[in-house]
C-alpha cells in the first residue's frame, strides 16, 4: 500500500475542508478503501479518517418524527438497534444481512452507501476499464455473471450497498456538509437523488465531490399500517454480496395497498425505483398471487448478458418475497 498523509479531523467541517485536497480519499471503517488501496486500484495521497469526526458518531435517535444517525454509525449498531427494529425492521434486516460480523462491527452506514462496486474488472488494476478512465467495459464481452441486467449500457456494475435500496424506500435523506474554501455549508440530499448513472459520469456512483462529507443519515418514521422489508439472494448463505436484492414498503388502508415503494438493487448500476410496479400495486388487496405477478412485472425490460440471465428469475423472487414480508409486517400492526 502506498503511503499517505492521514488526516484526523475532529468534526465533519474539518473533514470536509481536508477532503478538498487533491487525490484525497474519505475513509470510514476502511473495509472497502483499504482493500482497494492494497489492490492498487485507489492510490490516494491523502486519506481523511472520518471516524475521528465526533459528529459522524451521533447516536441512533428519534428527532422530529425521523430516525437520525451519524454517518459513521456501524452496521452492527443499526442491526442491533431496538428503535430501528421497531419502526423500520427492513432497515435493520438490510444491515444484519450485510457481509460478516467482523465487517458489520466496523463498516459504517455512510461507507456502505458510498462503497465502490464489486465488478472484478474495476477491482483489478491490470484492467484499464472505462470506469477507471480506460476505453473498454470488459464485462460486455467478458465474464459477466454478477453484472447488471438493467441499464447495462456503458458500464455494467451493480450497486453493492445493502442499505441503499431500503433507505431509498423509506424516503431517506443524507445530511451532507460541503467545504467551499474555508466556509462549510450543510445541505440535504434525498437518497433517490444521490446516485449517478454511468452515462452521467462513469467515474463515480454518487453525487459527492471533493470537499463533501455525509455527516448524518435519516429517514421519516413510517406512519399508519406500513411495513418495510429487505430481501436478497446470494450464492452463499452468508459472507457474500447479493445476486439480487429488493427493498419494499407497503402502506395498507382498508385491506388495500394505499401506497407502495419498491427498489431493486444488485441488478443495475444504481438502485432502481420500480415506479410502474408501485402504481400497479396501489388499490389492490395484498395476496401471494398479486406479489408473484408484481415480481414478474419487475423484470420487464431486463437486458441480460451472456452469463447473468438467471438474475431475471432471482429478481422476480426477491420482489415477491420483499412485498410479502412488507405486507405481513403492515398487517402485523404497522412497522
Amino acid at each position: 500500500m502506498k503511503d499517505f498523509t492521514y488526516v484526523l479531523p475532529k468534526d465533519a467541517a474539518e473533514a470536509a475542508r481536508a477532503a478538498a485536497a487533491p487525490n484525497c480519499a474519505l475513509k470510514g471503517a476502511g473495509t472497502d478503501l483499504v482493500d482497494r488501496m492494497k489492490e492498487g486500484v485507489t492510490r490516494p495521497d491523502t486519506v481523511v479518517n472520518l471516524l475521528t469526526a465526533t459528529d459522524l458518531r451521533s447516536p441512533i435517535r428519534e428527532e422530529n418524527g425521523r430516525i437520525v444517525m451519524g454517518g459513521a454509525t456501524t452496521l452492527a449498531e443499526v442491526a442491533e438497534s431496538a428503535l430501528i427494529r421497531k419502526v423500520a425492521p427492513g432497515f435493520a434486516d438490510a444491515a444484519a444481512e450485510a457481509a460478516t460480523p467482523q465487517i458489520r462491527n466496523r463498516g459504517t452506514v455512510a461507507g456502505n452507501l458510498c462503497q465502490r462496486p464489486r465488478c472484478w474488472y474495476f477491482r483489478n488494476d491490470t484492467y484499464a476499464c472505462s470506469k477507471k478512465g480506460g476505453e473498454t467495459c470488459y464485462s460486455i464481452e467478458g465474464e459477466n455473471k454478477y453484472h447488471a441486467i438493467f441499464e447495462n449500457v456503458t458500464c455494467n456494475i451493480v450497486h453493492p450497498s445493502n442499505l441503499a435500496p431500503i433507505l431509498q424506500v423509506l424516503g431517506g435523506t443524507l445530511h451532507v456538509v460541503t467545504a467551499n474554501g474555508t466556509d462549510v455549508v450543510a445541505s440535504d440530499v434525498a437518497v433517490k437523488d444521490f446516485w449517478v448513472r454511468p452515462e452521467e459520469d462513469i467515474s463515480r456512483e454518487n453525487i459527492l465531490v471533493a470537499g463533501q462529507v455525509v455527516r448524518e443519515v435519516s429517514f421519516p418514521i413510517p406512519q399508519g399500517m406500513t411495513g418495510s422489508s429487505y430481501v436478497e439472494t446470494r450464492e452463499k448463505a452468508s459472507f457474500d454480496w447479493a445476486l439480487t436484492s429488493c427493498a419494499a414498503a407497503l402502506t395498507l388502508d382498508g385491506g388495500k395497498i394505499a401506497s407502495a415503494s419498491v427498489v431493486l438493487s444488485s441488478v443495475a448500476p444504481t438502485p432502481l425505483q420500480l415506479e410502474a410496479v408501485e402504481k400497479w400495486l396501489v388499490g389492490k388487496a395484498p395476496s401471494d398471487a398479486l406479489f408473484r405477478e408484481a415480481g414478474t412485472k419487475a423484470t420487464d425490460g431486463a437486458t441480460p448478458m451472456r452469463d447473468n440471465a438467471y438474475k431475471i428469475t432471482l429478481t422476480a423472487v426477491v420482489v415477491r418475497r420483499a412485498l410479502s414480508a412488507a405486507a405481513a409486517r403492515a398487517t402485523g400492526g404497522g412497522k
Binding site: 503511503d3 488526516v7 484526523l8 479531523p9 481536508a18 474555508t182
Partner: peptide
C-alpha cells in the same frame, strides 16, 4: 494543506 481561516485538521505522515 493550510488555507487562510480555521486551523486545518490534525494530520500525520510517516
Amino acid at each position: 494543506m493550510e488555507p487562510v481561516g480555521p486551523a486545518p485538521a490534525a494530520a500525520v505522515r510517516g
